[in-house]
Amino acid sequence: MREPLIFDGHNDVLLRLHQQDISPGKDGFQGSGGKQIDLDKARTGGFAGGFFAIYIPGEAALSDSHDEMMAKNYDLPLPPQVEWGDAIKVALSQASILFNLEREGALNVCRCTQDIKNAMAEGKMAAVMHMEGAEAIDPDFHTLEVLYQAGLRSLGPVWSRPTIFGHGVPFRFPSTPDTGEGLTSDGIRLINKCNDLGIMVDLSHLNEAGFWDVAKHSTKPLVATHSNAHPLSMHSRNLTDRQLHAIRESEGMVGLNFAVAFLRSDGRMDEDTPITTMLDHLDYLIAQLGEERVGLGSDFDGAAVPNEIKTIAGLPNLRTAMADRGYDAALIRKLCHENWLRVLDLTWM
């Protein structure tokens, strides 16, 4: 099943290209040389595009954390906060990679839902510029204004380490998302500014206190682009029933994270995870949120995903699993892309 097309809530291909210092050309994106995302795999998998994250990794990354996350419990140390002067250089580098891909005809940078629909109709990959962690945003919001004009339409105030705007959740299992303080006063100002501009606020890495701060101050739907259900996997990154109900009441949505550590009940970074585990989370999210408020948020090029999928070329296996679970064609369309278009219409208007 290569249809319906999938519009996805999160990927890290810009970080991969930036870190490997690879040209966006055939070795890195426009052939079959990518890790989990490239154009050839997209055609095979029916991948229409999604949120392309700008992420600042800092001096110490979590890329070597696989062994620790195979333990029965873990609490990984986070990299330190990145100063603005360093962060803005990396952010602009990744934004430049995105615009070079557009210039070379590999994708379209989309600034409204009609842009996404047009790209999908034309067979072009649709890319929404997203920022995961706002270290590159100054407290006067000059950078935010410029990046918005360039195409930024989605932003997470934090990744997991703290910033001047708030506090994220650590990579901790087992744990609730209630891990500390929430937004700062600058963070509340950032939420208000994003609302004014029409930038979607992403809750996926905020801790629970920060989540409720956004719920209190934001006038837009609550959205977690790549998160899962805490009752099924007791990881700090996942959402409690109370959080899910707040998202439902705001007409927001959640994108299912494919990262195995956030899917499994044991929290292990084990790619030998059956695709049915993903369906269990989808079932739960649909039961809590309704059919119109659930989508996909893979974390491709930034996470270990189930072996039955591996890359975007494996997405037909997910569609088949949905059908085998009894999801009808209308529900599969909603999960694959219609629900993202619905919530973006509400957020960007």
Rank of each mutant, 00 (worst) to 15 (best):
S236P: 10
L289R: 05
G180A: 03
P177N: 05
Q288E: 09
E291L: 06
I188W: 06
F165H: 03
M200S: 15
S265F: 09
A261Y: 00
H167C: 09
V223H: 13
D196Y: 04
S154I: 02
P274H: 04
L285C: 06
E251S: 09
L263R: 07
G267S: 11
P274T: 10
S218I: 08
D202I: 10
D272N: 10
I191C: 00
G252C: 00
P177F: 01
E208K: 10
S227K: 06
H230F: 11
R237M: 10
H245A: 14
A215C: 13
I247C: 13
L263N: 15
T277K: 05
F171I: 14
P157L: 15
I199G: 06
N192Q: 12
D186E: 14
S250M: 09
N207E: 13
K216D: 13
Y284W: 01
Q243I: 05
D241F: 02
T176C: 01
R237S: 12
D202G: 00
S227R: 11
H230R: 12
F262I: 15
Q243F: 07
F171E: 00
W212I: 07
P157K: 06
R189A: 15
A209V: 03
D280A: 15
G210H: 12
F211R: 04
G180Q: 08
I188C: 04
R161A: 13
T273L: 12
M253A: 14
G156N: 08
G210A: 02
L190I: 01
H167M: 00
I199Y: 07
G290A: 04
D280N: 12
M234N: 11
A224Q: 00
R189K: 15
V201Y: 12
M278Y: 02
D213R: 10
H167K: 01
D241V: 14
M234Q: 13
G198F: 08
I286H: 04
G198A: 11
T273W: 13
